[in-house]
């Protein structure tokens, strides 16, 4: 029988849970993007250009990934103020990302490309639903960021365990990479 593992080498259970959850989210988007490919291969598929503003939102979310990384570093270095500020910036960038995505949808709408309703084509509907779900995941992250942000003001909690911050930052990097994947996917497959 195999040798037992030492407890200290183990991943923190919550971190591990997050990784499994990420696997789960990946399955959801994998299902949607493969449905997209299957449908794309069939007839009656509306070709259209992706909104330009998606390029800006991509830049924004990449920057936010950098800021959250820096905030984690600041937390570990116990620079409370810097940590708090970077956390706030990340949250703002997340919101900005969501707004930019909204502009993207508006751009499609103004070009007469309908995502929902009569006369909508599955190609636009897919784009809308997939990016929409992604935005929901980003906003979920923003809520978590805000909770951390508020906690950072509280003087009662004095903890130097960085596990929650690490978990949050892994999640944030994940939604960032997920967007980049989707962005490339839509450019290649669309």
């Amino acid at each position: 029988m195999s040798v037992q593992r030492a407890d200290s080498n183990r991943l923190h259970p919550h971190k591990f849970t997050l990784w499994v959850a990420i696997g789960s989210i990946i399955m959801m988007f994998a299902a949607l993007t493969s449905a997209y490919i299957v449908r794309h291969a069939q007839q009656n598929w509306l070709e259209f250009e992706m909104p330009k503003v998606f390029w800006y939102s991509t830049v924004v979310i990449i920057i936010s990934s950098i800021t959250i990384h820096l905030s984690l570093k600041a937390f570990r270095a116990r620079e409370r103020l810097r940590y708090r500020m970077l956390l706030g910036i990340t949250a703002l960038l997340g919101v900005l990302f969501a707004i930019l995505q909204g502009f993207g949808f508006y751009d499609l709408y103004s070009r007469g490309i309908q995502i929902i309703g009569d006369g909508s084509n599955p190609s636009a509907s897919f784009l809308g639903i997939i990016t929409g779900l992604h935005v929901v995941h980003v906003l979920g992250g923003v809520v978590a960021l805000l909770i951390f942000f508020i906690r950072a003001y509280s003087t009662r909690i004095k903890t130097y365990d960085s596990t929650p911050q690490e978990i949050l930052s892994v999640y944030w990097h994940f939604v960032d990479i997920l967007w980049i994947y989707l962005f490339i996917f839509f450019h290649l497959a669309g």
Binding site: S24, M27, L32, A35, R39, I116, G117, S120, S125, I129
Partner: peptide, 25 residues
């Protein structure tokens, strides 16, 4: 469960849009 329920969820999301928002998946 963790790997297959999200796929069902995606299927349901598309169904909800077809039912309520006039899409044609």
């Amino acid at each position: 469960g963790v790997l297959s329920f999200p796929v069902l969820f995606s299927g349901f999301i598309l169904l909800i849009f077809d039912r309520n928002f006039g899409t044609s998946f």
